[in-house]
Each structure stands twice: as C-alpha cells, then as structure tokens.
C-alpha cells in the first residue's frame, strides 16, 4: 500500500468526485450484537455497526463472509427465508426494526433495495418506476405520478435514454440500463436508506462507471449501503467501509483509513489480496 497524503485520500485510487468530511452526519441505522442463523449455521456473529446518514457505506469481504446476509437484515428481506433467524438489535432512527409492531412492508418502503442482478418487472418502463409510488399511494393523480416517474428516472441517470419509450418493456433495455432503471424504481418510493447488493457485478465497466457516479449523487439525499466485491469500487464510492470475514465484522472505519492503514492484520491481508 502506498502512503496516504495529508487529507487521508488514497493516492492509488482515482476518486475525483469524492467530497470531504463525513463525520458531521448523524447515525441512520445502528446495529448492536446482531446474530443471524440459517437453520443451524451461525452466519453473522456479534456484528455492531453504525451507519451514517448521507454517507455511502461499503461492505467488503470474501464470498460467504455474511456481508449480503447482513445487508438483507437491514430491511428484513431475510423474513422471506423460512430458516433464517435474526437476534440482536437493529434500529432505524432509534426504532427497533425487528419490533413486533413494525410492519416489514412499511420498513422496506423506507429502506429500499437494489439487487445484484437487474430485475425489472415484466412491465413497461413507466410501470416499473410507478410500481412503488402506486402501491404506497404517493401520487394523487396521473400528473403527479408522471412527475414522480420523471424525477426518479432523472435521478437514476436514465431519463434521457428512455424518455421517448416509456411504454416499451423494461426487460428490453441493456443490462446497465436495466440496473439504472432498478435504481430509479427504488428511489421513486422516496426511501431514506438505499441498500445495494453488488449492484455492478453484472455490468460492464462503462455501465459500472455510470452506476457509481449515480451512487455518489444519491449520497446527497440518502444513506447508501453497498456490498461489493471490488475493492477499487469500495474505495471510489464510499466514505465508510466495513470489512467482514467469516461472519464477523473485523474492522469498520473511514474508507481511506481502512485502505491505507488497516488496524486488523486480516483486513490488510484481504485488501492486499492475500486472503479472499
């Protein structure tokens, strides 16, 4: 690893769009002593982490280390898996999301999710984006819905490419366009947190660059949590990084510090490519 410069930036990675100072933001999600079991398997062990508002947080780690599982706990997507059991406390704005009174459906409207593989619904582009606003009743009339859809597509950086063919099926777009459509679909419901599970793993470098640029823009309004296998990507887009290994949260801190001056030897081995 190269030495860091004075501001803590990483010289080996080109990150021109990075904005400074993340520590002014408050906690959005705080997890404490989270345990996750799949049947008998103990998949997540004692994970405690505070995710900040208006910040991009990256989860990195080797395959099977539990980073995706933990991400899916944050909006209770694991509820759809029968054998999965979650213990410990995960709070969104100070409220326990696993409390019995919390409706997971309402929670997921606040904590949106973008998946590894682009998964547009077999509907038109317009209907894909309008799906969330419609089920949550965010628009009172067609004009408002049109406006929401346009705003979401603009924020998804895909408006210019699809504005003339909103009625054509979303499945007909290219892979990168589909993923940006899925991001637009997720932001259309006005979430407070956006979870992204390896959003670029099925995309080519150009589409990846577009999505990364988009993530950086989304930071102005949302707290973004991204799971990624690419350490360059983590370094490029995130301000905070958490390193998972075998179900444990090994290290969590400023991205620049994790990548240049890791505290734990396991983190150092991983980012220098010795384990993975």
């Amino acid at each position: 690893m190269d030495a860091t410069n004075a501001k803590g930036n990483v010289p080996m990675y080109d990150a021109p769009m990075r904005k400074a100072a993340v520590d002014v933001n408050e906690n959005k999600i705080s997890a404490k002593d989270v345990q996750v079991y799949y049947g008998e398997t103990h998949a997540i062990k004692d994970v405690s982490v505070d995710i900040l508002d208006k910040t991009v947080t990256a989860f990195i780690g080797p395959s099977g280390c539990g980073k995706s599982t933990f991400l899916r706990c944050l909006n209770r997507m694991n509820d759809t898996i029968d054998s999965c059991r979650v213990e410990g406390l995960i709070a969104l704005d100070g409220e326990d999301i696993y409390d019995k009174r919390v409706d997971p459906v309402q929670l997921r409207a606040k904590v949106g999710m973008v998946f590894q593989k682009p998964n547009p619904f077999p509907k038109s582009i317009y209907d894909n984006v309008a799906y969330g606003p419609r089920i949550h009743g965010l628009a009172r009339n067609k004009a408002e819905l049109d406006e929401i859809v346009e705003r979401a597509l603009r924020r998804g950086a895909i408006w210019n490419e699809v504005k003339d063919r909103l009625d054509s099926p979303g499945t007909g777009l290219s892979g990168g366009q589909q993923q940006r459509l899925c991001i637009a679909r997720a932001v259309a419901t006005e979430p407070e947190v956006l979870l992204m599970d390896e959003p670029c793993s099925a995309l080519d470098p150009i589409a990846t660059a577009q999505v990364e640029e988009l993530i950086d823009e989304l930071r102005e309004n949302y707290s973004v949590v991204i799971v990624t296998h690419s350490m360059q990507q983590a370094a490029r887009v995130s301000q905070k990084t958490a390193f998972f290994h075998l179900g444990n949260l090994v290290e969590y801190g400023e991205t620049s510090q994790i990548f240049t001056n890791p505290v734990d030897p396991r983190t150092e081995s991983y980012i220098t490519g010795r384990i993975g």
Binding site: M77, T80, L107, A109, M113, V114, F121, Y131
Partner: peptide
C-alpha cells in the same frame, strides 16, 4: 425469485 425480491424490496405486500 429475483422478481419477488424486487417487489418486496420496494415495500410491496
């Protein structure tokens, strides 16, 4: 399953 996940992820019942 990805379509179901996508829909649940948007807060659909």
């Amino acid at each position: 399953q990805s379509l179901r996940d996508g829909s649940y992820g948007l807060g659909a019942t």
